[in-house]
Simulated scan of single mutants.
Amino acid sequence: MRVSTRGDYASRALLSLALHADESGPTSARDIAERTGLPQPYLEQILQALKGAGLVRSKRGAGGGYALARPACDIRLSEIVSAVDGPIVLGDFGEPHGDGACDHEGQCVLLAIWTHVGDIMHDLLSNYTLADIAKTANGLLPWPGSDRSSS
């Protein structure tokens, strides 16, 4: 599995909203783009997909913008990536025993492994909430994969 640019940008945009959640009112796409260094036109498309997935809400007009639709502790990294990239899977190899998927030597066992690894990756991304990522960015939790804290 490879997280696409859309998945990375979506995660960065929502992290920005989480990091600034204590500020009053919604945040404009322009402000999110400036804070994250993301291209605003592409970011606006991504924010619309995140809105469709129920991860952000928007308000039009003066003082409008985007805000998290749920508390950051209730938004998982797997949801963000899935909202813009589709289901988290290693590939689209078909189902074992379906459509001749196991007609060749070893194919069925490999399909089972790819499915299992995709499930593990989904579970791993589900372990990270937006709130935890924001705490890590602020140095309040250790960096993933290390025992050190960020200072």
Rank of each mutant, 00 (worst) to 15 (best):
L140M: 04
L110M: 08
H116Y: 15
C73K: 12
G145N: 07
S16E: 10
I88A: 00
G61P: 01
L125S: 12
L110Q: 14
R60W: 08
A21T: 08
A53W: 12
G7H: 01
Y128K: 00
E23Q: 13
L77K: 04
I113Q: 11
G98R: 13
P39A: 15
V81P: 02
G64Q: 09
S16Q: 03
D99S: 09
S24W: 07
D85H: 06
G7T: 11
I113P: 00
D22N: 13
G91K: 07
P39V: 13
I88M: 00
S126V: 06
D74G: 10
M1C: 04
I133V: 09
R6K: 13
S28C: 01
I75A: 04
G65N: 07
S126F: 05
A49G: 02
E34H: 10
A112M: 07
A67N: 08
S151R: 06
H104I: 12
V117N: 08
D119E: 15
G25E: 03
Y42D: 05
P144A: 13
P39W: 13
G118A: 13
I113E: 09
L19F: 06
S24T: 13
G52V: 05
R12N: 09
C73Q: 13
M121Y: 15
E34L: 14
A134F: 06
I133Y: 02
I120S: 01
S82Y: 14
T115A: 10
L43Y: 07
A18D: 05
L68M: 07
K135V: 00
M121K: 15
T136I: 07
D119G: 09
D99Q: 06
R70I: 00
K59V: 13
I113T: 06
T27H: 03
I133T: 11
V81Q: 00
R2M: 11
G52M: 02
T36Y: 03
Y9K: 08
L19D: 10
I80E: 05
G52Q: 08
R30G: 07
G65V: 06
R70M: 12
L125H: 09
A69R: 09
A72M: 03
L19Q: 02
S24H: 12
E44G: 09
P96G: 09
R60N: 07
A53V: 01
G52L: 09
L141N: 13
G37I: 04
L38W: 04
L130E: 05
A101N: 06
G106F: 14
V3C: 00
A137I: 02
D123S: 15
G61Y: 06
A62V: 05
G106I: 00
D8C: 12
S146H: 04
P96S: 03
T129M: 01
L110K: 05
A134C: 03
G61R: 11
A53T: 03
P26N: 06
A134K: 03
E44K: 11
A137E: 14
G64S: 10
